[in-house]
Amino acid sequence: MSYSAVDEYEESKFLRKAKENPFVPIGMAGFFGIVAYRLLKLKQRGNMKMSVHLIHMRVAAQGFVVGAMTLGVVYSMYKDFVLKPAEAQKALEQKAVEKK
C-alpha cells in the first residue's frame, strides 16, 4: 500500500467520522479558535498574571468543547429516540394502507 493510498484512507475515514458526528470538528475548531485568540491577546492582558491568563484560556476552550460534545449527544439522542420512532410509525401506517 503506498503512502498516498494511506493518506486517502485516513482522510476519508476522518470525513466519514465527521459526517457521523458533526459536533466533533466543530468542537475542535472552537478549541483551536479560542486558544489562538487568547494567545493573540496575551500581550494585552494588563497586570493579569500569566498563569491566570492561561487558566482562563484553558477553561474557555474546555467549556466550548464540552458544550459541543453535549450538543452532539443531545442531537444523537434526538435522532435515535424522536426521529427514528416517528419514521418507523410512518412506515407501519404506510404498510397498513397498502394492505387495504
Rank of each mutant, 00 (worst) to 15 (best):
N21Y: 08
F23M: 05
Y75E: 14
K41V: 06
S51W: 12
G67A: 09
M1E: 11
Y78A: 13
I55R: 12
I55C: 13
L83G: 03
H56T: 08
S12G: 09
V35C: 07
R58Y: 11
G67N: 13
I26Q: 01
K84E: 12
Q89G: 00
E8C: 06
V59P: 00
K100E: 14
L71M: 08
E87A: 07
L92M: 09
K79P: 01
M57H: 00
A68D: 03
F64K: 05
Y78R: 08
V66H: 08
A61H: 00
F81K: 09
F32G: 04
M50G: 07
I55N: 14
G46T: 08
K79V: 14
Y37P: 01
V35H: 03
L42G: 03
L92G: 11
Y37K: 12
F23T: 11
G30H: 01
K43V: 08
K43F: 11
Y78S: 05
K95E: 13
S4N: 03
D7A: 14
V74K: 02
F31E: 05
K19S: 15
P85E: 04
A60K: 04
K13F: 09
K19G: 09
K79S: 07
P85N: 08
Y3L: 06
E11Q: 13
R58L: 14
S2Q: 01
F14A: 10
P22K: 05
Q89M: 07
A86H: 03
A68W: 01
P25G: 14
L39E: 08
K43E: 12
G72F: 10
L42K: 10
G46L: 07
L54Q: 11
F32H: 02
R16Y: 02
G72L: 05
A61M: 06
A5E: 11
A96T: 10
V52N: 14
E10A: 11
K90L: 08
V82H: 05
G67K: 01
L71I: 00
M69N: 10
R38T: 02
I55F: 15
F64R: 00
Q94E: 06
F81L: 13
E8N: 15
M57D: 01
S76V: 00
L15P: 01
H56I: 03
P85S: 02
E20W: 05
G63N: 07
L83C: 06
R45T: 05
K19F: 10
L15M: 04
R38L: 12
P85F: 04
V66G: 02
A68G: 02
G67D: 04
G46Y: 05
V24A: 14
A96Q: 03
G63E: 08
V24R: 10
V52I: 10
K43D: 06
G30Y: 01
G46H: 03
V66A: 15
V97R: 08
M69G: 11
M69D: 00
K95L: 09
V59R: 06
E10S: 06
T70Y: 03
Y9F: 15
K43H: 05
P85Q: 04
